[in-house]
């Protein structure tokens, strides 16, 4: 028997988790659906003629997913905060890796799929209702002023915006999964109030990054400004007719970008694994 990963054992763990949480999850999904319907109805009341433009649908999808996904991830290992529950969780005969993988399966994959399905279900229903209301106006129909709303694919480029060839939705997704993985780590790290504590830690890290760039790097560099990102710097020289600049090789920028986009996930997941391993009750 493999002591790190055994597919059959992992399936047992996935089934066990579902049997213990199915009621809670079904209710949570229903609550999420209800909240989304309320939000869409509210928008429809505010702006009955054009309630659901592309930006609104994209913002609803990604902001909603960020809030709900991070909250769920921060609660996933909440059992570890109470002695008896933690003992039950840790004494289930499965490896730490399988326990982590179960967390990733539910909190990352299944949540993403369920949230997307709920979003599109509400999106479809509410847009149909909005179109129904619009087309029921005889006066507008006769004047040819019917404005048909359409469902927007949130995984395509919205708003005609393009950033360095990478579609914007990809940035949204990457940021979401990175931040969510930090919340998953937070759920193992902080025995209580893990959502709030992770928020505070992330905020402090963000401020630290800003401080590092704004103060430390600026102090080291000559007078000037960052130009087109963090990898080229324009130097200010009094009386100069041309702007001189320092530019790091392109590959540094490319490598850094991909590291920032895809490097945090494995780091946070690995940290979660080791934190699970060293957890004591």
């Amino acid at each position: 028997m493999n002591q790190v990963f055994d597919f059959k054992r992992w399936l047992l763990l996935v089934g066990k988790h579902w049997s213990e949480n199915s009621k809670k999850y079904t209710l949570s999904l229903a609550a999420m659906l209800a909240l989304m319907v309320i939000w869409y109805s509210f928008v429809l009341l505010l702006e009955p003629r054009n309630p659901y433009p592309e930006e609104m649908q994209v913002a609803t999808y990604y902001i909603g997913m960020a809030i709900a996904g991070c909250l769920y991830a921060s609660l996933f290992f909440a059992d570890l905060s109470s002695g008896p529950r933690a003992m039950h969780f840790l004494s289930v005969p499965a490896s730490h890796f399988e326990k982590l993988l179960t967390g990733l399966f539910y909190a990352v994959i299944l949540f993403f799929v369920c949230y997307t399905l709920i979003f599109y279900l509400v999106d479809f229903i509410m847009i149909s209702i909005a179109n129904g209301i619009e087309s029921s106006s005889e006066a507008r129909r006769q004047a040819g002023l019917i404005y048909e709303k359409r469902m927007f694919n949130v995984f395509t480029q919205p708003l005609g915006y393009n950033h360095g060839g990478t579609p914007l939705y990809l940035y949204f997704l990457v940021i979401y999964f990175n931040v969510q993985s930090a919340f998953l780590l937070g759920s193992v790290y902080f025995p209580s109030y893990s959502f709030i504590k992770t928020c505070i830690v992330l905020l402090l890290l963000f401020l630290f990054g800003v401080l590092l760039i704004g103060t430390v790097l600026n102090g080291l560099l000559p007078d000037g400004w960052f130009h087109q990102g963090l990898f080229s710097y324009a130097i200010y020289e009094e009386g100069a007719t041309e702007v001189r600049g320092v530019r790091l090789p392109d590959w540094v920028g490319v490598v850094s970008k991909y590291l920032a986009m895809y490097g945090f996930l494995p780091i946070f997941w690995t940290a979660t694994y080791f934190r699970l391993k060293e957890k004591e009750v």
Partner: peptide, 20 residues
């Protein structure tokens, strides 16, 4: 806490928890 070990050791703690 290897799975093979956990299969062989069962603990009934004083404060117990079992899912509902």
């Amino acid at each position: 806490r290897k799975p093979a070990f956990l299969q062989e050791v069962f603990m009934v703690p004083e404060e117990l928890y079992f899912p509902d």
